[in-house]
Simulated assay, not measured.
Amino acid sequence: MTTSDSISVSTNQDGLSFINIDNAHATAKVSLFGAHLMSYCPKSDGKERLWVSPHAYLNGEKPIRGGIPLCWPWFGHNHGQEKGTLPSHGFLRTQTWSIANSKDTSEGTELTLLPAFTKAKGFDHKCEVKLVIMIGESLSVSLITTNIDDHEFSIDCALHTYFNVEHIGKTTIDGITGDYEDKTRESAVLTTPTPYFVSEETDRIHFCEAPNITIVEDGVRTTEITSSGNDTIVVWNPWHGAASLSDMDAFGYKHMLCVETTVTQGYGLQPNETHVLTQVISTAK
């Protein structure tokens, strides 16, 4: 394993380990619990791109609220069993990962992380999973799944990114068009609004072709989000529902917006096939 001179590892009082990255292009922070990106701040404008709840659990008891949680091998409760019998969004975000490799290049710092296991209740297939992160002028996150079994299996997955915004009331989304499924309206299929503002509880599965470029503008920062390997983009904000979440302030919804690169329609992975889900977060030019 090669190692990067730009990273250091720290541990909090509850025993969680964090990778801290500081290179010529950006600073970032990754929790090994969940392989969870918690911070990305490009030095070109000094603006933090990710939002983490001040009340997030950082003791390993629950998934971390904010940053970039990993959803795999199902999204939400779409696992074919009764709701509540299996963990929401799968089991990658609640296990401790290991560092397989880290290196510095002219583009930035690259990390490769591996989960402790890929087989658990609800998913009994042989596969290899890794997360590859490149921290540079842009942040690239790739969740990579390879089928090493002798039969096809299906996965859903997501990079469930919480973006930091100055105020949700001043934030616009550009680049998403077409129809979406509205989970707050009994899965009604509606047309994406133009201009696109969030002004209520929002949980929308947008059907789109990949790659897709989405722009989030909040009056302070402009962020470009490039998605590939996905079949949908999910836009989520709990609005007043944040008050019912134990790990989120009642008014936290005003300063975050989830724009998630997702596979929600099921991807059939053939033997020896690899699927790559990637989200690239950039300072818009």
Results as ranks from 00 to 15, higher is better:
68 I>C: 06
154 S>D: 11
246 S>Y: 03
68 I>W: 02
10 S>G: 01
162 Y>G: 04
274 T>D: 08
273 E>T: 08
189 V>S: 11
121 K>N: 14
85 T>I: 06
282 S>E: 09
218 D>K: 04
44 S>C: 12
2 T>N: 15
193 P>S: 12
90 G>Y: 04
283 T>L: 09
13 Q>R: 09
7 I>R: 00
68 I>E: 03
167 H>M: 04
97 W>P: 00
119 K>I: 13
266 G>P: 07
146 T>Q: 13
280 V>I: 15
190 L>V: 14
76 G>R: 04
88 S>F: 04
53 S>T: 12
134 M>W: 01
265 Q>F: 01
244 S>F: 04
73 P>C: 10
188 A>Q: 14
142 S>R: 14
204 R>L: 09
70 L>P: 00
249 D>F: 01
38 M>I: 10
70 L>M: 04
285 K>D: 11
79 H>N: 15
189 V>W: 10
4 S>W: 02
8 S>K: 15
171 T>I: 08
215 I>G: 02
146 T>C: 08
37 L>T: 00
148 I>H: 05
6 S>D: 04
125 H>I: 06
33 F>W: 15
243 A>F: 01
205 I>Q: 08
118 T>D: 07
153 F>G: 10
142 S>Q: 15
179 D>Q: 13
11 T>S: 06
153 F>Y: 15
233 I>A: 06
272 N>Y: 12
83 K>L: 02
201 E>R: 13
103 K>E: 00
254 K>D: 02
123 F>N: 08
188 A>Y: 08
220 V>F: 05
64 I>K: 07
267 Y>D: 02
235 V>R: 05
103 K>C: 00
43 K>V: 10
175 G>Q: 07
34 G>D: 07
196 Y>F: 15
176 I>Q: 07
148 I>K: 11
148 I>A: 06
67 G>W: 02
122 G>P: 10
18 F>Q: 00
229 G>R: 07
217 E>F: 05
101 N>F: 01
55 H>Y: 12
279 Q>M: 14
96 T>Y: 03
145 T>L: 05
244 S>G: 12
198 V>L: 12
95 Q>T: 13
245 L>P: 01
227 S>C: 13
24 A>Y: 00
133 I>F: 01
62 K>C: 02
236 W>M: 06
208 C>L: 09
120 A>S: 14
248 M>C: 10
49 R>E: 04
98 S>H: 10
130 K>E: 12
169 G>S: 12
90 G>Q: 06
124 D>V: 06
126 K>V: 03
201 E>A: 13
195 P>C: 13
59 N>C: 08
269 L>H: 05
272 N>K: 15
206 H>L: 11
226 T>E: 13
208 C>D: 03
143 L>M: 12
69 P>T: 03
225 I>H: 06
70 L>K: 02
168 I>G: 10
73 P>Q: 07
10 S>R: 04
121 K>F: 05
99 I>E: 01
163 F>K: 01
259 V>M: 00
51 W>P: 08
117 F>E: 14
149 D>S: 15
257 L>N: 01
124 D>Q: 14
210 A>Y: 03
189 V>I: 15
23 N>D: 07
182 D>C: 07
141 V>G: 03
171 T>V: 09
134 M>E: 10
257 L>M: 00
60 G>L: 09
36 H>G: 01
159 L>F: 06
55 H>T: 11
44 S>G: 04
2 T>E: 15
92 L>V: 08
220 V>L: 12
